[in-house]
């Protein structure tokens, strides 16, 4: 075993800060690590692969006849709804995995390296967009197999997909905050799903709003997910961008504006 002599500590010239360029590089490396981990443990992807397939099949055949008269007529309404439900649920994983990561020995090594403090958090957030992409792709593919032909064509679907992924990324800041402050990974999962369950189901994802009692209708129409679902429906089925698109966009930006600083501050106190 041989090794060259190292440079003595006192003779090194070093800076006490990490440049923006280096910070971006660190974050991308951490994202690469996240993707590698997904590749090594593909079972992590069960939620984003099985949920779109299972839910789309289940809800279409269960509700199709009752709500839209036929399965075929239900698809244009359901697919965007299922898509948003799936992708938003996937964003919970960001928080859960962040907590798991922070509890492991490897996190201590990251903290002992001269890298941007924010890199592990940023890397996790970046890597997770890939999960949203997979969930989006599978949901549309499933819909296509069942006979869904978006009237707006591929362009509308693509723009719709992008806004869903962007929205999920913005929402994942909330769950990242839970991940940073929570004590265990399972509590992150528990709290997050408790919030998401009513949000996704009490929306216009599965049923027409006008069938609901007034108090519920009120909640469904203020639910930001309803606006996102409407925006994606308009994009995929009519190729149009309406008020709901801009509302969703603004809402997502608002979530990031509020939660990104909170998450970063909570995270930096521990990193």
């Amino acid at each position: 075993m041989t090794a060259s002599q190292i440079v003595p500590g006192a003779e090194r010239h070093l800076k006490n800060h990490t440049s923006l360029l280096a910070s971006c590089g660190n974050s991308l490396t951490m994202a690469y690590r996240g993707l590698l981990k997904i590749r090594r443990t593909p079972e992590q992807l069960f939620d984003v692969t099985l949920q779109p397939i299972l839910f789309t099949l289940m809800f279409t055949y269960l509700f199709g006849g009752a709500i839209a008269g036929s399965v075929h007529n239900y698809l244009p309404m359901l697919i965007p709804g299922i898509l948003i439900q799936t992708v938003i649920t996937t964003s919970v994983v960001t928080g859960v995995q962040l907590r798991e990561d922070m509890d492991k020995g490897v996190f201590n090594r990251f903290r002992s390296l001269p890298i941007a403090r924010i890199a592990p958090l940023a890397g996790a957030l970046i890597a997770d967009t890939v999960r949203y992409g997979i969930a989006t792709l599978l949901t549309f593919a499933m819909g296509y197999l069942m006979g869904y032909r978006p009237a707006a064509g591929l362009g509308g679907v693509l723009v719709g997909s992008l806004i869903v992924i962007l929205f999920a990324w913005c929402i994942s800041w909330i769950f990242a905050l839970f991940g940073v402050v929570a004590r265990t990974a399972s509590s992150v999962q528990g709290i997050s799903l408790l919030i998401l369950f009513p949000l996704t189901f009490l929306s216009n994802a599965f049923v027409p709003v006008d069938t609901l009692p007034p108090w519920l209708r009120w909640f469904v129409t203020v639910n930001p997910l309803s606006h996102l679902i409407t925006a994606v429906r308009q994009l995929a089925n009519q190729g149009s961008i309406g008020a709901d698109f801009w509302l969703s966009f603004g809402g997502a930006a608002g979530v990031v504006a509020v939660f990104a600083p909170l998450t970063v501050r909570a995270y930096m106190r521990r990193a």
Binding site: N16, R33, K37, R40, V106, R109
Partner: peptide
């Protein structure tokens, strides 16, 4: 404390518990 980022460039830390990623090679 004040020059933590410099100190981190001067040290290598091997903890008591594996500080490597289990799932990776």
């Amino acid at each position: 404390q004040r020059e933590a980022q410099i100190v981190r460039q001067l040290i290598g830390v091997t903890g008591q518990y594996a500080s490597v990623d289990e799932t990776l090679t």
